[in-house]
Amino acid sequence: MTASSREPLLVLEGLSKVFTRRWLGRGRELTAVRDLSLTVYRGDLFGFLGPNGAGKSTTLRMALGLIHPTAGRVLIAGHDLAAERLAALRQVGAFVEAPSFYGYLSGRKNLEIFAGLSGGVAAAEIDAVLERVGLRGRELDPVSVYSHGMRQRLGIAACLLPKPGLLILDEPTDGLDPHGIRDVRELLVSLVRDDGLTVFLSSHLLSEVEHLCNRIAILEQGELILQGELSELEREHRGLSLSVDRPAEAAALLRERCGVQAEAHPPPREGVRIRPGSADPAVLNRALLEAGFRVAALEPEPHWLDRLFLERTTTREAAPAGARP
C-alpha cells in the first residue's frame, strides 16, 4: 500500500516558528522551524530525525499545542489543533523531552491523574497498561524512587491511557540500558502491529529508526530536508560494502569492468563502497575473484542511514542561537 492511499493521521502544514526576544525595544528574531510540511499516515512508525538544535522539539511541541506556530497548522485525525484542540488531543498520547511525573505520588496515582485529564479510565485498564510496560508490583511506590528506565516505562504507560490513536514520543529509549531499549522497541512494534497505533518517534538513534520505522523525515536547521518511505530511501541510497584486499585497485577494476560507481574507503575502515544501482553482487564477486582479489565480504552497506544523515546534515557541536528556543 502506498503512503498516499492511506489515511493521514498527523499533518503538519507549512509550520513555522519564529521566536522573538525583545530587549530594550530591540527585537531579535530566531527562526526555529521554517515552512515544515509532513504527513504521518495511520499505521506508520514514523522516525523524525535531526541533529541537536534542528527544531525537532519545537516541532513536537507545536504538534501538541504547547507552542503556538507563527504560521501553518497542525491537523490530528482531521481536527485542526488550533480550532479543535480538545478533539485533536483526544487522539494523542505523548511525551516531549522526558516524561514528567509528580515524584511524591505513586506511579499508579500519576497514571490516574493524567488519564483523568483525558476523561478517565477504568482501574482494569491501568492494571493492563502497567502489566504491559512491566511495572506491575511497583505501581504503588512513589515515582521519586523509580529508576530512569522505570520512569520511561511509566511515561509510555501514561501515553497509552486512555487508548490513543497516535503516539508522539521524544527519545523514548533515551538513557535506558540495553534490556530496556530492547523492551521499549518491542513494545512500540507491538503497539503498531497488534494494536493498530501510529507512532511518531523523534530520535537521535539512527539504528533505532532504521530498525523500527517504515517512514522517516530529517530536519536540519528548522527545515525538512528529506522525507519518505524507508524502503524507497534504502533502495535509492543503500549501496554495497566490499571487504577486499587492495581496495583502491578493486574499486578501479569494478568501475572499469562492471560500470559501477565504486570508491575505496581510506583506512581505518578499509574497503570499497559501491553506490546504489543495478549492480548484481554475484557479477561483482566473480569479476573480483577472476582478477585475483581475495573477497572477505560483499554485503548491503551497513550504517547507510548514518551516512545519509551525515551527508545531508551539518554536524555541529552546538546549535546556532536561532535554532532552539
Binding site: L86, A87, F95, E97, S100, Y102, L117, G119
Partner: peptide, 14 residues
C-alpha cells in the same frame, strides 16, 4: 519547572 504542566497541557484539557 518540573515538566508536569507540559504533561497536563498535552491532554485534552483547556
Amino acid at each position: 519547572e518540573q515538566g508536569t504542566l507540559r504533561a497536563c497541557l498535552i491532554r485534552p484539557v483547556t
